[in-house]
Nucleic acid binder design. Structure first.
Lengths: 155, 155
DNA sequence: TGGTATAACATGGGAAAACATGGGAATCAA
DNA sequence: TTGATTCCCATGTTTTCCCATGTTATACCA
């Protein structure tokens, strides 16, 4: 079976004047092993940047490629939004990617950014915004705790 | 696994007096790697130009002839329209393609154009029109958000 | 165990290459 | 010839690449 790749951990890095950020080294290892590339886009539902391996989008494209849906309006809209926003972000020899103005603005990132692992994907946040978001999520999860199953909460 | 070819990102380029536009460099890379060519045609459902690799139309054609009962008369008609309109658009040594008067008129493009990635396809818009269209799509998609899957919207 | 050497990493800055774009000469067609 | 199309060169800008430095983490040894 193929090795699985999970983006994990939370890492704070600086963003320099050119918009460059070091990709966490764990993430870089994943990219190298998977022989794919990092793709980033503006999250549809939060003020943050979302990233994943290009493989994930490739899967999406293949599903839509079916000529039965060649003329579907709804899929048309969806592909415009996703692929129109997404872009490859290869890292240089020192491990940095260069985030575009558009992404930085959407996530309100200026001089530092937090990488948050999410399994197959990861997010990049403005540090203060992430702090608030994490609080919100923790509160939310605790509220719904009784309904959580199979995630090691039995005892 | 095959290397992935995805048209992505949104790029604004100028159209000069001769009708020349630089094809975004990412797109050029795809064309070179795929050893195919760019094909453009008037979009059937929007005031924009649509483009893809010739491979994709090739695939569409094959599926049409293989599955006689599979496709409705309506889709057959739509496909005919596309093939009747489509044409190769090779780029020169500086990476520019020359859009025809017909295409430019259909998309109301004069002195600048926006390339919008759609995965296997891409679109070329008049900048103002695209701005409105993007707004429309965002509104539309967010309205239907619960139904989105595998497109990075879980959180 | 403590301390030091070594390697990996994050970060800054400058050089080099790639890119978008304008213009003109050469080529071709009506 | 006229108009259009292709090819080539020039230029300013952006992006990418490469080297240097300080810091942190890891390995090693006494």
């Amino acid at each position: 079976m193929r090795k699985t790749f999970l983006f994990m951990d939370t890492v704070l890095n600086k963003v320099d004047a050119k918009g460059r950020v070091s990709l966490p080294s764990d993430y870089r290892a994943i990219v190298k092993e998977s022989e794919s590339e990092i793709v980033c886009y503006r999250s549809l539902c939060a003020p943050c940047i979302e990233g994943c391996l290009e493989d994930l989008l490739e899967k999406l494209a293949s599903e839509m490629e079916d000529s039965l849906d060649f003329f579907s309006q709804k899929q048309d809209d969806l592909t415009n939004l996703i692929f129109g926003d997404a872009k490859r972000y290869p890292f240089d020899s020192t491990g940095r990617i260069m985030l575009s103005e558009k992404l930085l603005k959407h996530a309100q990132i200026t001089d530092s950014a937090v990488f948050v692992g999410k399994g197959r994907k990861f997010q990049i946040w403005n540090p203060e915004n992430w702090e608030k978001e994490e609080q919100r999520i923790r509160t939310e999860v605790l509220k719904n705790r009784p309904s959580l199953k199979g995630a090691g909460n039995e005892s």
